[in-house]
Design a binder for these strands. Structure first.
Length: 516
RNA sequence: GCCGCGGUAGUAUAGCCAGGCCAAGUAUGCGGGCCUUUCGAGCCCGUGACCCGGGUUCAAAUCCCGGCCGCGGCACCA
């Protein structure tokens, strides 16, 4: 109809999403079923988002089913965090991921017991009563331990005893029979179920109801089969696990799903690993799980990183086994691209210095400024800065720009006027109005700097991560900043993008630094 | 003890499986230009790289062998 009206929109920036390579052997399956299986012992981070998003995208592309499964079968070492179940779902939703089915492993224990019995009955597993170190010796010498050749019946009986609470932690485990000749000792007769004393380490969901717990490999392997998963996308650190699970599948006559191992995703300068985050959390009173120094999805969200950017990064890195370190500069750049057209622009000054300007004409055109929040996005509206009728107009500029003023003797205050320095002493300057024309400023080569009127401003605190340090920048900003809702991404002119967190009694604003 | 992965511009990466369309793509950085919101933002142009050695081939960043360097994983965590 009016094609020209759509020009701008189309040119806005065609963010093309990279197409996913085809999944292997889809024709073998009626429907593609993928899954994401986090351990709810902590919040998920950018690295977890990779398999999550790719699994989801594949399910969608093939019109299949995407499964969310909580792997919470270690009440002792990786004890689930009660709030993590919900938090993970929230983070996934934020990323635009939805799931068709949801499972919680700690609620499926009887299923694992059943499969374990079947496996033992078929001679594919046995109950081992060796102490850990004892077994290790046998294994390294490629000898079988004394319990290995027990009859299935005997093992089954011992398994029931395990379940009844007869054994203590470490006294009995169920081992999957593999091949003693395996060159990789870590594969040999791996543990499928072990005892965890839940009276001492209660599970947040099931308390002390169960004392025999499946290991990751057993539970994951069984569940992938039981829930009909056809394609597994997971970190390449799981490559060995596939080999382990294969023994269970073979013993039970199951066919193993297709597996794609993904490389790790790191975020430059940010803490991703759970253990490191927990370390910082334990050390610092201030830190929260969404501390902007962390690479958790919550932290990225808090910093104003848009979910589309996280998606874009993951799709860009693609489906492969190579690790990738995402540079923060890149994240910032992608985010800026999307934020710039929609972020209102406001002036703020850090480390402020006061400047008194005389000779500013008293007519309204010079004293009452109407400024748009964005040069090209009119929908963001505008605000008015009223400089009053005093003889001198007082503004704050940053100490850095104050240095420029001293050096060059003149400056242009962004969208206001040109000034020249009359006198200065530490932290204060007197200047003279020399006109409002931008052309003059340009010809004179004046630097154009942001400023805040002394007459009306808000205090601004910006939380800024610098490496592992967290700094709080204190400054002042135009009072109009307080009119935005918390959560708004704002561009502080010549400073960077900031996400508003709190607006306190209209005179104080707290924000988190997103990026330049 | 054992298993696996990677080395592409200053930085981070794509391409490698299916060799030629790669005198190597993207982002950032850097240099220049543009924008009457004036900017450290944005837009445009430019700059710059296939770890080393050998082999296969008409043809190799891509395949094979060796070397050097870096990284990750497993063994009753997930």
């Amino acid at each position: 109809m009016f094609p020209e009206l759509f020009e701008g929109v189309r040119e806005a920036r065609p963010v093309e999403e990279r197409a996913l390579p085809p999944l292997p052997n889809v024709e073998k399956y009626r429907v593609v079923r993928t899954r994401f299986a986090p351990n709810p012992d902590f919040y998920i981070h950018l690295g977890n988002a990779r398999p999550a998003l790719l699994s989801y995208e594949y399910a969608r592309e093939y019109r299949g089913v995407f499964i969310l499964r909580f792997e919470d079968t270690d009440p002792r070492i990786k004890r689930p965090l009660p709030e993590a179940y919900e938090a993970i779902k929230e983070d996934l939703r934020w990323l635009g991921i939805s799931w068709d089915e949801e499972y919680v492993q700690s609620l499926r224990m009887e299923l694992y017991y059943g499969v374990a019995r079947e496996l033992i009955a078929r001679g594919g597993a046995y109950v081992d009563l060796c102490r850990r170190e004892e077994f290790r010796k046998f294994k390294l010498e490629r000898r079988e331990c004394p319990h290995r050749n027990r009859s299935p019946e005997e093992s089954l009986e011992l398994f029931d005893r395990m379940l009844s609470g007869y054994f203590e932690e470490g006294e009995a485990v169920v081992r999957v029979k593999t091949d003693l000749a395996l060159s990789d000792p870590s594969l040999i007769d791996w543990v499928a179920l072990r005892i965890v004393d839940t009276s001492k380490h209660p599970h947040p969901l099931t308390g002390d109801r169960y004392i025999v717990w499946p290991t990751y490999n057993f539970a994951a392997g069984v569940d992938d089969r039981l829930t009909g998963v056809t394609h597994i996308l997971r970190g390449k650190e799981h490559a060995v696990n596939t080999l382990k699970q294969l023994y269970v599948y073979r013993a039970l006559g199951w066919e193993y799903p297709e597996v794609i191992n993904l490389g790790r995703l790191k975020l430059e300068g940010m803490i991703l690993s759970k253990s490191k985050i927990k370390e910082v959390l334990g050390r610092s009173r201030r830190a929260e799980v969404d501390d902007p120094r962390f690479g958790t999805l919550r932290a990225l969200r808090r910093r104003g990183i848009l979910p589309e950017v996280v998606r874009e990064i993951i799709m860009e890195v693609g489906v492969k086994g190579t690790d990738a370190t995402i540079s923060w500069e890149n994240v910032a750049s992608l985010n800026r691209r999307r934020a710039d057209p929609v972020a209102p622009r406001v002036m703020a000054v850090f480390d402020p210095v006061r400047v008194s300007i005389r000779d500013v004409p008293k007519d309204p055109s010079a004293r009452v400024l109407r400024l748009d929040y964005h040069p090209s996005n009119a929908s963001l509206g505008s605000r008015t800065i009223d400089l009053g009728q005093e003889d001198v107009v007082e503004v704050f500029i940053s100490r850095e720009d104050f240095g420029l003023l001293k050096e060059r003797g003149a400056l242009r205050l962004l969208e206001f006027c040109n000034i020249s320095l009359e006198s200065e002493r530490e932290g204060y300057a007197e200047a003279r109005f020399t006109g409002t024309e931008l052309e003059h400023a340009r010809r004179a080569g004046l630097r154009i700097v942001q400023w805040v009127p002394v007459r009306s401003y808000v205090r601004l605190e910006v939380l800024k991560p610098e490496g592992l340090k967290l700094r709080t920048l204190r400054g002042i900003a135009e009072d109009s900043l307080a009119r935005f809702q918390p959560g708004t991404l704002v561009q502080l002119v010549r400073v960077g993008f900031v996400k508003l967190e709190e607006v306190l009694e209209r005179r104080r604003v707290k924000a988190v630094y997103a990026h330049d």
